[in-house]
Structure formats: C-alpha cells, structure tokens
C-alpha cells in the first residue's frame, strides 16, 4: 500500500506535466492547421492601372507570396452580353488590371492594414480590397484560448515540479542511509542509485502509457461523438504516434534529473 502511494505521488505530478505537454502539442498542431486554413481563405484584390509582376508586389511588402492576375477577357465576356461585341476593344482598353494576392502567413489586423497601405501607396494601384476579415474574431478568440492554455500549462508544470521535488525529498530520506552505506563500501553511482532509477523509470513508463491511452481514447472514441466541429475536423491532430516518443523522452528527462538530484545530495556518511 505504501509502495503504491509512493509510486502515485510521483506518477500523478509527472502525468500532469505530460498532459500539459500533450495539450500543448495538440493545440499547437490545431492552431497551425487553423492558421493555414485562414491564410488560404484570406486574399487581397488589387486594381492596378498597368500590369504588375509578383516581384513588384514583393518589393512593396515581403509578406506577399502569390499574385494571380484575373483574366480581363473573362470579365469582359460577361459585360459584352449586354453591351455588344463592337465595344469590346474599347472596354478592354479602359478596364484596369485585377490581381488576387495571397500572403505567406496569417497576420494580425495591424500587419494586414500595413500591407494594404504599402500597396495603396504605389502610384500604379487604384484600389485594394481585402476578403476574409470575418475570420478575424474567431482567430483572436483562438489565440486567446491558446495563450490562456499555455499559461495554465506552465502553472500546472511548475506546481507538478514542486510536487516531484517534494517526493524526491521523501525518496532521499528513504534511500539516503542505504546509498551512503553502499558508497562507503565503494559502490559506483549507478549501483547505489539503481533502485531509484528502477522505480523512477517504471513510473515514467506508466505515466507515458496513461497519458497516451487517454489521448488515444479522446481521438478514437470521444472526438467523433463530441459534436465539436473543430475537434472532429482536426481529429488526426489529437494524438500522433510521435507524441509517445516526445512524452516518454520528456518523462525520462524529468526522471533522470530528479534521481540525480537525490543521488548527488546524499554523499558521505552521517555521524
């Protein structure tokens, strides 16, 4: 019973840290994907007096990634139906040049306004229209949730680390005498701390398994019934096989640091 309690006292804070890491990974991936979709949905329409090349747009602002000219003949063909074929060339001459611009990343409103201003400042440009501003509010909300989550994760990680340190002190007290006696008889570091490493490694593996199992359940069972669109759409982002390696690596780093902190503070024999 005491042994189970000792394990839980280490596993639970370790799991809290691993959950934090996994939440961060999931949110980071989901945000990334969401930003990508926002970026793809966002575009600028530029009306220019003369033809413009991508390099010219890039000189105006380096966030511009793609410029696609809108075929003027296609616009005219719709107008011609009402006006007549005879005026086609005349209208074509009078018609400005239209371009759709795509950006390299999803930017905040201030930066988008700067791009618009940069393009408008160019003498050849008559007008700039933007599409996709309706995404702005949801993006802001998303960023806010991500920020809150990150703060929460950091808070949980700090509290959990304090709990782990507390548990280490209990371990230190429990194993101190044995490790000191072994040291006096010439036991190398790995031998005298072997038991601690064994316990801690088992706990690290269990913590990784528990957290992975929880997210696998969320991914394959809970997500589809959740009714939350963003989760259903990003189901694949909820847990990836590489996450197991990241979680296990993180758990092992915490374990090794924790055990060494015990081992290096129990040198020498007490009077």
């Amino acid at each position: 019973m005491k042994s189970i309690k000792n394990h839980l006292m280490f596993i639970l804070p370790l799991m809290a840290i691993l959950l934090g890491i996994e939440f961060f990974l999931v949110f980071d991936r989901t945000t990334d994907r969401y930003e990508k979709s926002l970026k793809e949905g966002y575009s600028m329409l530029v009306v220019a007096k003369k033809p413009m090349k991508l390099s010219t747009f890039k000189k105006l602002n380096n966030h511009i990634k793609i410029s696609q000219p809108i075929k003027r003949k296609a616009i005219i063909s719709k107008v011609i139906k009402d006006i007549g074929e005879s005026s086609k060339d005349e209208i074509l001459d009078a018609l400005p040049y239209f371009y759709t611009l795509k950006l390299d990343s999803y930017l905040d409103t201030r930066e988008l306004n700067n791009i618009k201003k940069d393009i408008e400042a160019y003498e050849n440009v008559k007008k700039v229209e933007t599409f996709g501003e309706s995404y702005n509010d949801s993006y802001r909300l998303f960023s806010f949730i991500q920020f809150i989550l990150e703060v929460f994760i950091i808070f949980i990680a700090v509290v959990s680390l304090l709990l782990i340190i507390k548990q280490m002190e209990i371990w230190k007290y429990a194993h101190k005498e044995r490790m000191q006696i072994m040291e006096i008889f010439g036991a190398p570091l790995m031998l005298r701390s072997g038991v601690l490493f064994k316990i801690a490694l088992i706990d690290a593996i269990f913590s990784t398994i528990f957290v992975s199992a929880l997210f696998l359940y969320i991914k394959f069972n809970w997500a589809k019934d959740s009714g939350i669109n963003i989760i259903i759409q990003n189901k694949e982002e909820l847990f990836m096989i590489t996450d197991i390696a990241i979680l296990l690596f993180s758990a092992l780093v915490i374990v090794v640091v924790s055990v060494y902190s015990v081992v290096f503070t129990t040198n020498g024999i007490d009077e």
């Binding site: 005498e177 044995r178 006696i181 072994m182 006096i184 008889f185 010439g186 024999i269």
Partner: peptide
C-alpha cells in the same frame, strides 16, 4: 580502494 577495505561501525550501519 574502498572495495578492499572492511569497515565496522559502532551503530552497525546495516541496510
């Protein structure tokens, strides 16, 4: 060197 020394303590120091 310590592996070639036998040490006996007053308070035994057994595990």
């Amino acid at each position: 060197l310590r592996t070639h020394i036998g040490i006996i303590f007053q308070d035994y120091k057994l595990i």
